[in-house]
């Protein structure tokens, strides 16, 4: 196997490991649009990184956390419905990012790469970076698992029972922002949410417990990466979208199985 392929595969698995459990929580908490708004803001983060000359992965995390907090605060004021608010943020962030990048004439930016991913360009360093993020995120998730699960079932009940709701929610948002920063190289800003949601949705009909669903989602995500990469080489299709379509096919198989049963 070629080196670049192996790196792509490892990076893809690294993202699938995170996208599985986090995507499962996004599905339970009905935060798909929220995830989308955060991932769209990543472009603004990249522009900021290029502007001040630091790693774009850090600026992406900073920008999406800032956005997550402002959405949460605005939602509490409750004058706009959540989905409208998220729509506004999502598309403004994307547009703002595109405009910011267009100003940077000195830097040649691979816009398509950012939007749809460029997994075949993953470097050795990227793989290490993803691996260390994996460890950090999974450890954090392990420690907040019970409170996060409790507040995903019902936030008020969890709060009355003494679960640290605000803290857990904030940590969860941080984790999502981190995954976005990691995943954007694999499937691109526009497709990150799909990698979070589709494997989790595919895992639902075959799972009997929350943990099982998270594990199956990870496995389905990893399978999607494998099939997507393979298909992309076989038919010379763009890699990011191929991974997403592989996940969709697995989702359809799981749904069909559930209906036939």
């Amino acid at each position: 196997m070629d080196d670049f392929l192996l790196r792509a595969l490892l990076a893809g698995y690294g993202v699938a490991i995170l996208a599985g459990p986090l995507g499962t929580f996004i599905v339970w908490r009905r935060m798909a649009y929220f995830g989308e708004a955060l991932s769209h803001s990543a472009l603004l983060g990249i522009a900021l990184g290029l502007l001040i000359g630091i790693s774009s992965q850090i600026t992406v995390i900073v920008i999406s956390v800032a956005l997550a907090i402002s959405i949460t605060l605005l939602r509490h004021r409750g004058e706009l419905s959540s989905d409208a608010l998220l729509g506004i943020f999502s598309h403004s962030a994307l547009s703002l990012g595109l405009i910011a990048l267009s100003f940077m004439e000195s830097v040649r930016v691979d816009l398509i790469g950012y939007l749809f991913g460029d997994v075949l360009a993953v470097t050795q360093n990227d793989v290490y970076w993803i691996a260390s993020i994996d460890v950090a995120v999974l450890l954090t998730l392990f420690f907040i698992w019970r409170p996060l699960l409790a507040l995903s079932v019902d936030e008020e009940l969890a709060q009355v029972e003494g679960t640290p709701v605000a803290r857990t929610r904030l940590i969860f948002m941080l984790l999502i922002a981190t995954v976005i920063a990691v995943a954007m190289k694999i499937v691109g800003i526009l497709l990150i949410t799909s990698l979070l949601i589709i494997p989790a949705a595919a895992a639902r009909p075959i799972s009997n417990s929350p943990e099982q669903m998270a594990l199956f989602a990870t496995a389905i995500g990893a399978l999607s990466v494998s099939f997507g990469l393979w298909g992309s080489l076989q038919w010379d299709t763009p890699t990011g979208p191929s991974i997403v379509i592989a996940a969709t096919v697995l989702f359809l198989i799981a749904q069909t199985r559930a209906i036939l049963r």
């Binding site: 019970r146 409790a150 079932v153 008020e156 009940l157 029972e161 929350p210 099982q212």
Partner: peptide, 27 residues
């Protein structure tokens, strides 16, 4: 120590959760 029984609580079908697991989540 307060035990609270809310008026309404709906666990969507999106989360596979047994009744006993739900109870274990209480603390």
């Amino acid at each position: 120590r307060i035990g609270y029984m809310p008026q309404h609580l709906q666990v969507g079908s999106l989360m596979p959760l047994t009744v006993s697991r739900f109870l274990l989540l209480g603390g």
